[in-house]
Structure formats: C-alpha cells, structure tokens
Design a protein around this nucleic acid. Structure first.
Lengths: 228, 228
DNA sequence: ACAAAAGTGTTGAAGGTACACCCATGG
DNA sequence: CCATGGGTGTACCTTCAACACTTTTGT
C-alpha cells in the first residue's frame, strides 16, 4: 500500500529504478516489423533490445515511453498501450530495475530510427528474424505481441500501422502478420467493408495487377467504433 | 531501456518506491465483495484503501502482492492477475510511489481479515457500497474490476470465488455480481452445463426451496479449459 | 496471350438471445 | 396450500468458416 510510514519503503535508499520499454510495431513491404536497438555498453553490450528509457522524477511511465518514441523515431501522438510490468530481481544482472512494457503502432512513413546515447544501432526486424534479445526482452516482446493479438481480435485497431491510403490486401497482410495465421480473402474483405469508418476512394493502386481500389479511414468514425 | 549507464538512472538517490496493491474479491451472501483496509496514518489517515505493500529488494511485485494476501487474509496459493501499473507523480501527495495493481479471487471460507501495522480496520464491501478511496485507489479498483469483467467474458475463471459445492443459482449470482448485469437463467445454465469440468453431485442444498442440486469443479479439467 | 492479383456470394455450423410453464421444497 | 425458487426447450438471429470462378491489369 502507499505510505511513507511503511518501513520497507522508508529504507528507500535501495529503491529499484523504473524503466519503460517499447515494442514499436510498423508494417512495411507487406511484413509486420518491430524496432530493435543495439546496446553498446555492458551489461549486454552488442545485444539487441527493445528500446526503452528510465522514468524520471516528473514523468509518468507513459510519458517516458512517449519520450523514447520521440527521440528514437521522431514520432508523436502515437497510441501507446501498457502491456505489463516485469519485476524479477534477476532480470537485470547488475542493479534492480523494474520495467513496464508498452506497445506502439507507427506508420512506416515517419521513421528513420536514429540511435543515440548508448546505442550503436537501430533497425526494423521482421518478427521471424528477431534475434535473441538482451535482458528479458524476449519475454517482453512476446507479451507485447500477445497483447496486440488479443486486442486485434476484439476490435479493429491497427490502422495506425497503415498508410493514409491502402488496399484491402495490404490490410489483410497486416492482420495476417499480426495474428500469424492465414485469413480467407472474401471473409476478411466482408468484415472490413462492414465497418463504416472504412471509406472507398476512387483511386486505384498503380503498378499492381488487378488494379486494386484504395481505401482510407474516417478517423472520427473509427474513434467512435473503438470506444465501443 | 535497462542499463546502469543511463544518466537519469544513475542519479538513483531519488528512485521511486514501488508497491503492489490488491483488489481482493470474494463472494458471500449472494454478493460480490472487495476487501478494503482503513489507513491509520497520514497521508489519507482514516481513508479506505485497497490493501497493498511495498516491494522489497528480493521480491517480485507478484510475491509482494502474495505476501499482502497472506498477511491480511491468511490465504495462500491464490491466483493473482496483474492489472496495470500506475505512475502519476501526483498520485501520492508526499513521495513518489509507483504501484502495480493485481486482482485476486478468494473463497469466502478462509478469510477473517486482520488489520495490522498502519491499518485500523479491514472489511468486505459490496461493490455498490465502496466509499471514496484514498490515493488513486478508486481508479485502481475500477481498472481491476474492468479487467475481471473482460477475463470472465472470455473464459470461465471465477470458481475460486465459489465454495467447494455450489448451486448453479449461486454461480449465476456471482456472474451477475461481476458483470453487473442480469442473465437469463436458462441460457446461463445451458452454458454452464456445457462445461465438462462442472460436475453434478447427488446432494441438494438443504433449507432452500426448490431443492437445488449441488455442483463441484473438476480442477484438472478446469485447468485444461483455462489453458485454451 | 498469359500470368498475377483483385473482386465477388452462398451455404452450413455454432453460439447467443429471447421467452413461459411446470416441479420441488419450505413455511 | 401457497409462496418461493429450481428446473426445462424452442425458435430466431447473428457471426464465423468454408469454398471457386470471373475480372482487371501488367508484362
């Protein structure tokens, strides 16, 4: 419980540090991808990780995560969803660090990740190609992906991952990339078209056979639908 | 991200304390109830709260929550589910305290809550009767209850709240208490009876008109069903 | 012209919801 | 005997899953 009186709290010299780590998902070239950074200092120097940052005195965890996103991929106004908090004392080999994991969905346009600070690299990985990660970040990523799947099953909420205009096939590839299963085109399409926030444009995607129609999202209607 | 090298972390003198707060639900006299404790010291002296405790160096948050449950209601081997982490810097008026909320489901038998330490009282409240709580615990309780509802809609998982033997009406009252809506008896009953982990006994509940049959749970089969 | 991808409808199964009457027991 | 709560079945609707052929466009 909260309180300055609790003795375990009063001896606060040894309180744990708290970080926010982000599984940042994007969709490009027909594949779901996640942003990883490479750490250049010990422990886990050279390991790939989910990007994250330490919570400061003034910030909430969500603000911390938002800052990470802003600094790394220059993205603002992104939907962030809390996945869970990981507190195993052994998860950090040196100090006690508790972390709260978030997932974020970003458009492929606005992202040229720029590693700074103690990072030597930053890159988008296809989910299948993700290497073993440092700390317990494999577990964080699994949890984030699992939660994204759960949310997607309940409601349509991944249009932040698609460009302004997109074809239904692209949307289907995105769903398949997240859910990791193949979907029936006709059933998928019928479900999509039943959403009133999906708007047919009069343009077609050039350079692809079949000449697929482009669609866009009516954000206000989507907002309403997501409220439920 | 994790790392001793991050400067915001290195100045760790001011790290936040971390607590685990529990929404402990029980079902008695046909009503869903939650355990509240009354705080006897400032800040929020005299306020009702969700019980909680500070995370120590060696423990995970879940172990912390488990200890709270053990000390307060003497219950062990309870399913604990993480609800979320709350980090608003203003949520504690004095110090920086981040909390992670869990919910737990306990059988009505094993509980005579015994307030200790800085608590003057502990009592089961019907959800409707919960008074305004101290800190941001109204929000924690709302979040915990909301998550319990979500989980219950997805799968049957509240038999930890029922006694060894129970009638289907009792189970229905429990569902209704959690979901806060009225259910159709025949539909509810059909769904329950479709579960193969629900086992009809040959006893009837005495002292109640109609002479309702008692049922029990095959824990192993339930475990399997919960896996999904 | 051919290859590749887009576009399109129907049917069956399963699950959810709505609804009313008789039966068993306690008082 | 009567009041209270327990126990039961059917019809409709919605949702999801399975499944194959035609049209459009690029090469």
């Amino acid at each position: 419980m909260d309180g300055p009186v609790n003795m375990r709290v009063s001896t606060a010299s040894s309180a744990a540090a708290h970080t926010a780590d982000c599984a940042i998902f994007a969709f490009s070239e027909g594949e779901l991808r996640v942003l990883l950074v490479r750490r250049s200092v010990e422990p886990f120097a050279g390991s790939w990780l989910l990007p994250g940052g330490a919570m400061s005195q003034e910030d909430t965890l969500e603000e911390t995560a938002r800052r990470v996103l802003l600094e790394l991929v220059g993205v603002q106004d992104i939907s962030l969803t809390q996945v869970g908090t990981f507190s195993d004392p052994g998860r950090h080999p040196v100090r006690r660090v508790v972390t709260t994991c978030y997932y974020a969905l970003v458009r492929p346009e606005n992202h040229t990740p720029t590693p700074r600070g103690h990072l030597s690299d930053a890159a988008w990985y296809r989910l299948d190609d993700v290497p073993p990660l440092g700390f317990d970040h494999d577990e964080l990523l699994r949890a984030a992906h699992h939660q994204l799947i759960q949310h997607l099953r309940e409601r349509p909420m991944v249009f932040d991952l698609l460009p302004e205009r997109f074809t239904l096939t692209e949307a289907q590839q995105l769903y398949e990339g997240i859910l990791r299963e193949r979907l029936d085109r006709r059933n998928f399409r019928r479900k999509m078209l039943s959403y009133d926030f999906l708007i047919e444009t009069d343009e077609k995607r050039a350079g692809v056979q079949g000449g697929p129609l482009l669609y866009r999202i009516d954000s206000a209607a989507l907002r309403r639908a997501e409220k439920r």
